[in-house]
Amino acid sequence: MDRMIIVNLPVRDLGATRRFYTGVGFTVDERYSDDQCLCVVVSPSIYVMAMDRRRFAEFVTTPVVDAHRATQVLNCLSMGSRQETEAFVAAALAHGGFEHAYPVALDGPVGPQGEDMYGAAVTDPDGHVWEVLYMAPA
């Protein structure tokens, strides 16, 4: 069985969320979307369920984190090239996202074996961090 990953995220404004995620090139599966959630298709095996904060709260027993104030998770998405990485960042910024400053540089031989990597990070309108990372083939 091929496994899928579904990232569930609390959001304040589904319209802004839709503009951001479709703006970076993802699609929305309307069959699983309604006025409380948005099913974003990142790839055939990766989905984001963006849920209104009240709906999201129905699935947890702990407080819902405000991603503008605290980081609970760092989502990392692989990219095919430096150019694709830069294009993703540009699209994210143009569609309501924000730059996320790295505490370390990800440009050059930075992997454990000296791999050539290039990365950047953005946040969606709700502050959820999306790292985009290109790793050059060995």
Score class of each variant (00 low, 15 high):
Met1Pro: 14
Asp2Gln: 14
Met4Ile: 11
Ile6Glu: 13
Ile6Gln: 15
Ile6Tyr: 13
Val7Glu: 05
Asn8Gly: 04
Leu9Thr: 13
Leu9Asn: 09
Leu9Met: 12
Pro10Val: 00
Val11Lys: 11
Arg12Val: 05
Asp13Pro: 04
Leu14Met: 02
Ala16His: 06
Ala16Glu: 11
Thr17Ser: 06
Thr17Arg: 03
Arg18His: 12
Arg18Trp: 02
Arg18Asp: 06
Thr22Tyr: 03
Val24Pro: 02
Phe26Leu: 11
Thr27Gly: 09
Thr27Phe: 13
Thr27Arg: 15
Glu30Gly: 06
Glu30His: 13
Glu30Asp: 15
Arg31Tyr: 06
Arg31Val: 04
Ser33Lys: 02
Gln36Pro: 07
Leu38Phe: 02
Cys39Asn: 14
Val42Pro: 01
Ser43Gly: 06
Pro44Cys: 04
Pro44Tyr: 00
Tyr47Trp: 12
Tyr47Gln: 15
Tyr47Phe: 10
Val48Pro: 13
Met49Phe: 07
Asp52Leu: 03
Arg53Phe: 04
Arg53Lys: 14
Arg54Cys: 07
Phe56Trp: 00
Ala57Arg: 03
Ala57Phe: 00
Ala57Asn: 03
Glu58Trp: 10
Phe59Cys: 08
Val60Gly: 10
Val60Asn: 12
Thr61Tyr: 06
Thr61Asp: 15
Thr62Cys: 10
Pro63Ser: 02
Val64Leu: 03
Asp66Asn: 14
Arg69Ile: 05
Arg69His: 14
Ala70Gly: 05
Val73Cys: 12
Val73Asp: 08
Val73Ile: 15
Asn75Glu: 12
Asn75Ile: 15
Cys76Asn: 12
Cys76Trp: 04
Cys76Thr: 15
Gly80Thr: 08
Ser81Gln: 02
Ser81Ile: 01
Gln83Val: 09
Thr85Trp: 07
Val89Ala: 01
Val89Glu: 00
Val89Cys: 02
Ala90Cys: 01
Leu93Lys: 00
His95Ser: 00
Glu99Pro: 13
Tyr102Phe: 06
Tyr102Gln: 07
Tyr102Pro: 04
Pro103Met: 07
Val104Ala: 08
Ala105Glu: 11
Gly108Gln: 04
Gly111Asp: 05
Pro112Met: 07
Pro112Leu: 03
Gln113Tyr: 14
Gln113Pro: 09
Glu115Tyr: 03
Asp116Pro: 05
Met117Asp: 05
Tyr118Leu: 01
Gly119Arg: 01
Ala121Gly: 13
Thr123Ile: 07
Asp124Phe: 03
Asp124Cys: 03
Pro125Ile: 02
Pro125Gln: 05
His128Asn: 12
Val129Cys: 08
Val129His: 10
Trp130Thr: 01
Glu131His: 13
Leu133Tyr: 03
Leu133His: 04
Leu133Pro: 12
Met135Gln: 08
Ala136Lys: 06
Pro137Gln: 09
Pro137Asn: 08
